[in-house]
Amino acid sequence: MIPTTLAERLERLRADAPGLRAYALVDGLQYEQHFGRSLRRRWGTVHTLFAGTEDEPLASAGPWLVDIAQPDADVVASLDELETARPGVMWLFSTQDIESLVRTLQRKLNSKLPNGKIALLRFWDPRVFVPLFNALDTERRRAYFGDVDEWHGLADGKRFHVSHHA
């Protein structure tokens, strides 16, 4: 389940934004390596961000969005364990429904490099998220991360969060 400190934070934020929802952004490869099974799509609850993209054949290893309010007991119960063991979970708070948030996050998957090539940007991995955030100026941070109310993760054993309110 969602870590207690994050659940408390979510409840405080819901006082001003009652429609705020909690999601987990899960690295499919980390999940599979840790638990020995792949995530499976469940309509309205568990979605792969690679669906409908050129990377769809790699969907099981890519990022997955899990709606915590409509939990799949097998998946949600294991997320706290996965986050502690591997860099495989980010927690998102958003007013968007899961389908809208999937589309929002899909637009972040690829980034154009200065040489014109396209690169997959692993923003769902805390090891990438933190350096990416730190590399951007305030305007670019807002542009890239601002369409999600809050991002939470664990990097090097320390909890971090990015809020569009701050």
Rank of each mutant, 00 (worst) to 15 (best):
L121H: 03
P114T: 10
Y144F: 15
F160P: 00
P87K: 07
D149P: 02
P87T: 04
W64E: 04
D97W: 10
L113Y: 12
E99F: 06
A15R: 13
L109E: 00
R9D: 05
R142C: 14
V76M: 06
A61R: 06
L49D: 01
S163C: 06
R159T: 06
F50V: 05
D97N: 10
L105Q: 03
R37M: 10
A85E: 06
P57H: 08
P57R: 08
R9A: 09
R127F: 15
S78N: 06
Y23I: 05
E11K: 05
N134K: 12
V76D: 03
D80K: 08
P131T: 10
I98C: 09
F129G: 02
P87V: 03
L13R: 13
G88H: 06
L25G: 00
L121M: 10
V148L: 09
R37S: 11
E32H: 14
W151D: 08
L79E: 00
T84L: 15
Q70H: 06
G116N: 07
S111C: 15
V148Y: 00
L20T: 01
I68A: 15
G52R: 06
L109F: 03
K158G: 15
K158E: 13
V66C: 00
R41N: 06
D55S: 09
R14Q: 09
P3F: 01
D55A: 11
S163H: 08
A143G: 13
Y144K: 04
P131E: 08
V162R: 07
H34G: 04
W43P: 14
D67E: 12
A73H: 08
S163R: 05
G52W: 09
Q70T: 09
L105W: 00
L49W: 01
R40C: 10
A61S: 14
R37W: 04
I98D: 04
E150A: 05
P63F: 03
M1S: 04
L121K: 14
F35S: 03
R103E: 14
